[in-house]
């Protein structure tokens, strides 16, 4: 498919409501706008992140004009993290949240940076070690659907810009629920659906016309950023994700739209 074809398809589908949880058929799922076999998604997403890992932070700053730092700050503020807490930063990538959590939980606490992608995990580990953050951080390569931790282990679990890449989101939410301690909380920071139509259109134009070109120029990988734009559109909208969290067992779920709903922070408790 030529880039033009992809763009026209993107424009058609960009108006699709963000309510698709997973593909209709149980054995298939989405990879951006493509419907693929579930078994293939992990390796295809892995391919994207192996490709962008080294330029990930630079691209985040460029694409969001640095606002991703404020979204992450908001997540930390909403987490209510305390000294001594045990935190799981799932799909933690290059460790922005882990770095902050590590300082806040102190020597008595612990932060686990988990990511399914080894390249992202390596970049994150190198970055945090270069910052001198070594005392209370552990690194685990893990699939969010099958978390390799005991039940009732964590006070806080965060997943920032990672849930949309997970093949079976419901399974991942159930897995997160089980590793949270009673009283623990999950924070999901993820791209979502803008609240205003005008902003939605501008955002669509930016995502499908500018973002892939930026990716091509800086990370030499336009396709991965095309996937990024498509995966955002296929991700469940605010209310759907809230419902999914409730179905997984979370209580007192709420969400907060940031930057007009471009990003939303969902929060739920395990009691």
């Amino acid at each position: 498919m030529s880039p033009t074809d992809q763009n026209s398809q993107a424009s058609d589908l960009s108006t699709t409501p963000h309510t698709s949880v997973d593909a209709d058929n149980e054995s298939t799922t989405h990879f951006g706008y493509k419907t693929i076999e579930k078994d293939d998604k992990i390796s295809m997403v892995a391919g994207v992140f192996h490709s962008v890992a080294k330029q990930y932070d630079v691209m985040n700053d460029l694409m969001s004009f640095g606002i991703h730092r404020l979204w992450k700050r908001f997540t930390i503020d909403a987490s209510g993290v305390r000294p001594g807490n045990k935190v799981l930063d799932l799909a933690g990538g290059t460790g922005d949240l882990t770095a902050k959590f590590s300082k806040l939980v102190g020597r008595e606490g612990k932060v686990i940076l988990a990511d399914i992608n080894s390249s992202m995990l390596n970049v994150g580990r190198d970055k945090l070690r270069d910052k001198g953050l070594v005392q209370n951080i552990e690194y685990v390569q893990a699939n969010a659907e099958y978390l390799p931790f005991e039940e009732n282990t964590f006070d806080i679990v965060t997943i920032a810009f990672g849930l949309r890449n997970v093949t079976d989101k419901d399974k991942a939410l159930r897995s997160i629920y089980s590793v949270l301690k009673p009283g623990g909380r999950l924070l999901v920071l993820e791209f979502s659906k803008p609240e205003h139509e005008l902003l939605n259109k501008a955002y669509d134009f930016y995502s499908f016309n500018i973002l892939p070109k930026m990716g091509e120029l800086v990370a030499k990988d336009g396709e991965s950023y095309q996937y990024l734009a498509e995966s955002i559109r296929m991700h469940p909208d605010q209310e759907t994700l809230k419902d999914m969290m409730e179905k997984a067992g979370f209580e007192q779920t709420s969400f907060k739209n940031l930057t007009g709903g471009v990003v939303a922070l969902h929060k739920g408790y395990k009691f």
């Binding site: 700050r73 908001f74 909403a78 209510g80 007192q252 930057t259 408790y269």
Partner: peptide, 30 residues
């Protein structure tokens, strides 16, 4: 007791999760 405390805190946070303009613009974070 922990669970009750968490419920109280979460109630407080639900208020914080309201739609204040300064929150939407992320002014506290800036």
């Amino acid at each position: 007791a922990d669970t009750q405390l968490s419920k109280q805190l979460s109630n407080q946070l639900s208020t914080q999760f309201g739609t204040k303009l300064s929150d939407s613009l992320l002014l506290p974070q800036v």
